[in-house]
């Protein structure tokens, strides 16, 4: 495999910028994705939020507010995993080949993609945060900083996860499998929609290996003061997951077939 040693860091930065730029332009020009990313969270907050909110749950706040951190994470989960697994498309159409014949290392391409995923997630989350104001949620400087950090880390983690799966899957149908077996479980088992404290033991065990669980909990801590664990604990576990998944992702990406 290629090493980046003999390329000056300037060139690597330029390459990262190139890959990032491409992703952002594609994202901004695909109107349908922008529209969908505004309406999906709105739909969840209003329909699920007020629908389930009218039942009697013991959660210590309005149900809409309770799921709000979960909806932020939902945006990040969907955006990032999709983003990563778009690599299947890039490979199907010859775009990835044209990147692979350039003298850039696979690791650079991997990181360029995750940067794109993080930026896209930020766009989406910004929209959700504005919706939050309408729900009566107040942010201060600290909570905004905490939200920003969690969103960026979770997004890095899950874009890597998407790239990992994407680098093993060759057919476009595989994309559907990723949606069913990765995206939905990550979301539903994260405690985004219900408190995880009272879950049966076996289910609770599964939520513990979902990085989104700690993100939802961290955001609930910083926005609503309602976490199961402490913010610091959530952050530490999330970083650990991200580290492991990124390593696996880069290794998978380097052994991926270019054609």
């Amino acid at each position: 495999m290629l090493s980046t040693k003999n390329l000056s860091s300037n060139i690597v930065l330029g390459q990262l910028y190139a890959l990032w730029l491409r992703e952002i332009k594609v994202f901004l020009r695909e109107r349908s994705r922008l529209v969908a990313s505004t309406f999906t969270p709105l739909l969840w907050l209003s329909v699920i939020g007020s629908g389930l909110g009218s039942t009697n749950l013991q959660i210590g706040t309005d149900y809409e507010k309770f799921i709000f951190p979960g909806i932020i994470c939902m945006s990040v989960i969907f955006t990032s995993v999709f983003f990563g697994s778009y690599i299947i498309w890039d490979r199907k159409f010859d775009f990835l080949k044209s990147v692979m014949v350039a003298p850039s290392s696979r690791t650079t391409v991997f990181v360029g993609k995750t940067l794109g995923g993080m930026t896209t997630s930020l766009f989406q989350v910004a929209i959700v945060l504005v919706l939050g104001i309408a729900l009566g949620i107040n942010y201060d400087a600290l909570s905004l900083l905490q939200i920003l950090s969690i969103v960026l880390i979770l997004s890095f983690c899950l874009t890597s996860l998407g790239l990992t799966f994407g680098s093993y899957i060759e057919s476009l149908e595989g994309f559907q499998l990723i949606i069913s077996f990765v995206v939905f479980p990550l979301f539903f088992l994260s405690g985004a929609l219900f408190p995880i404290d009272n879950l049966p033991a076996w289910l609770k065990l599964i939520t513990l290996i979902d990085p989104a669980t700690y993100s939802v909990d961290a955001l609930r801590n910083s926005i609503l003061n309602l976490g199961t664990y402490s913010f610091e604990y959530d952050l530490a576990v999330l970083l650990l997951f991200t580290f492991i998944i990124t390593i696996i992702g880069i290794l998978s990406f380097r052994r991926m077939k270019a054609v």
């Binding site: 330029g14 390459q15 910028y17 730029l21 332009k25």
Partner: peptide, 16 residues
């Protein structure tokens, strides 16, 4: 989705 120029710019950057 990119313009001709943008395609070239991305690659010029990739090639340093």
């Amino acid at each position: 989705i990119l313009t001709g120029y943008e395609n070239l710019k991305v690659h010029a950057l990739l090639y340093g």
